[in-house]
Design a protein around this nucleic acid. Structure first.
Lengths: 159, 159
DNA sequence: ATTAAAATACTCAATGATTGAGTTAATGTA
DNA sequence: TACATTAACTCAATCATTGAGTATTTTAAT
């Protein structure tokens, strides 16, 4: 069977899909970096804010360290910057007093709005073109990718 | 109509889709950062290498500056590191001698292999679960997103 | 109870990538 | 020929990140 690389008619092969995915990641990163520059923030700070926002329940510095692949010192410095700028709040856990929970403030909500709005518009404009079945396929694909990628957490190598 | 947020039965809404996309970007970034650490490279270097690899024709430092949202000084430094490490080659354009074209060397190919292999395995394992129609839907979605995100290039603001 | 080990977040000096402002060289234009 | 533009580069200053170590709290063992 001949492997076709194009988007036009042929099968969707692994390589073309991987390039698409990498391209999208690059686009997202570029936008995040652009936004960070505008807001006098750092890319790390923006990534951290997004993590804090998207987390279903208040996240901890340790989890952030793991998710962003930073040292604990870098996380502390990043949280210091965000706290100093009034974007987040540190809250000590009452039961386990070693743990800190991170909450965002209104200032950060506005910031997040400014960041997400254009993205949401783009995403919405794309989603509108698809039917429910196709959307479900895309959602299932993304969920599967996220689960699969989540399993690639430095299986080898020490902590 | 009631907006449902879950993955189980309800419609796929904008919010849930946006979160999925952000999550995937975060996973990719984490993996790239992890790989960079292992290889004693920087995240920027890895991103640059990926751009050089995925570009259909040899890319220039100027294009990189634009894509990665860096200053030209940072790009030069990054390319210096990659060239010193034997990953890339700078080639002056014969016709416009201001322009430099970037080519990768074999060393970089091996590096890219080490980086992409696990990702490819994950992607492949996911793609295998979908039929041709669904795959086409996903591919179309990604293409549309990439085009739409590509249009979000700092429309306002000076260069 | 007491001690040791593990876990969480933090501190701080050193490193080094990135910025910001310029320079150099090549090309296009009046 | 002079002027403006473009592409890449240089370099001192800045500041995020690392790496090693500290402080505090919790868990497990004796």
């Amino acid at each position: 069977m001949v492997i076709m690389n194009g988007d036009d008619e042929g099968d969707v092969d692994l390589r073309s899909m991987a390039v698409r995915l990498r391209r999208m990641t690059a686009e997202f990163n570029r936008i995040a970096h652009e936004f960070a520059n505008e807001q006098r923030l750092h890319t790390t700070d923006v990534q951290t804010l997004i993590m804090i926002f998207d987390a279903p329940s208040p996240i901890t510095p340790g989890k952030l360290r793991e998710e962003l692949n930073l040292t604990s010192g870098a996380v502390t410095a990043c949280l210091d910057r965000l706290e100093r700028a009034g974007h987040i709040r540190r809250v000590r856990d009452a039961h386990d007093r070693r743990v800190v929970h991170l909450h965002y403030r209104e200032a950060a909500q506005e910031l997040a709005g400014a960041f997400f709005r254009p993205l949401a518009r783009s995403t919405d404009s794309v989603l509108r073109r698809f039917g429910p079945d196709e959307l479900r396929a895309v959602a299932t694909f993304l969920d599967a990718m996220n689960e699969e990628l989540g399993m690639l957490r430095s299986a080898p190598g020490p902590a």
